[in-house]
């Protein structure tokens, strides 16, 4: 793993693609490849969640695409970025034509420490580079189970609240440009405003953008929580600070 450091060119291409009309015409295959590359470059080389359930077909396809990117590019971040830029050009991006949006929204995750590999090498070093298969004829329960992905209804892509949940700042910006009169305090069917969701999920750039647009930060959700309370529970200190400052 390495710290994601997307270059300005990449940021620009991503900003272009987030609102590119040509994107609606490309196949799912290309979209998935773009998604995989984007996550690989901006978040981490491989997905950090478990593979979504088989009923969550979209989520699963995206997860697989991300994983596939890792398989294809390994540690070659440069190549992955080159491929992303190439696809963006094919979809009409011209370098320098887009004002690079806000600084990278991705929080830089510190590189994970590699699990201790400090054992003395007394045997077959060459084998360690091979991909370990399962512990072959294993006995004993060696797989730690975790919660399966819930099969909840997915939010509809391209809505105000979906951008807030996923933290898609470019998507939100493009949405606001094309829908300038949208009510940004609107509650979704579960009683959350976009500010609630972004504060809960920890998407600082979205919170900042919404505050800049003058949203009401005192609205309470179905459990009587305001945005700042949600951010506090989720331990998003940066968002708590921003919201407190906005409240004066």
């Amino acid at each position: 793993m390495s710290t994601p450091t997307p270059s300005p060119r990449f940021e620009e291409a991503a900003a272009y693609l987030s609102s590119a009309p040509s994107l609606s015409k490309v196949s799912d295959t290309v979209k998935l490849e773009l998604y995989g590359l984007f996550k690989f470059i901006t978040t981490s080389h491989s997905p950090n969640s478990s593979r979504p359930s088989i009923f969550n077909i979209t989520g699963r396809a995206k997860w697989d695409a991300w994983k596939q990117t890792e398989t294809t590019y390994g540690d070659r971040d440069g190549n992955a970025e080159e491929r992303y830029l190439q696809l963006a050009r094919e979809l009409g991006w011209i370098e320098g034509s887009v004002q690079s949006a806000t600084q990278s929204s991705t929080s830089a995750v510190p590189p994970a420490t590699k699990p201790g590999d400090d054992d003395e090498d007394i045997w077959d070093d060459e084998e360690t580079t091979k991909r370990h298969q399962g512990s072959s004829a294993s006995m004993g329960n060696t797989h730690v189970s975790t919660i399966t992905e819930h099969e909840e209804a997915e939010r509809i892509a391209g809505t105000l609240h979906e951008y807030a949940v996923t933290g898609d700042i470019h998507g939100l910006q493009a949405f606001l440009q094309s829908h300038p009169t949208t009510d940004l305090n609107e509650k979704d069917e579960y009683g959350y405003t976009p500010l609630h969701l972004a504060s809960d999920r920890g998407h600082l750039p979205i919170v900042e953008l919404l505050l800049a647009k003058g949203v009401d930060s005192t609205i309470k959700d179905q459990d009587e929580f305001t945005a700042v309370e949600l951010a506090r529970v989720s331990e998003h200190d940066d968002i708590v600070a921003v919201l407190e400052k906005a409240a004066g």
Binding site: S49, I147, A153, E154, E189, Y190, L230, S234
Partner: peptide
């Protein structure tokens, strides 16, 4: 296996479970 989550914040943080898209961590 079935899991009864107790320390929700930590379990979400470490990716053991996740917040469904229709609710908040607080909920």
């Amino acid at each position: 296996y079935n899991h009864r989550c107790l320390n929700i914040s930590k379990l979400v943080n470490i990716g053991f479970t996740h917040v469904p898209s229709n609710m908040t961590l607080a909920r």
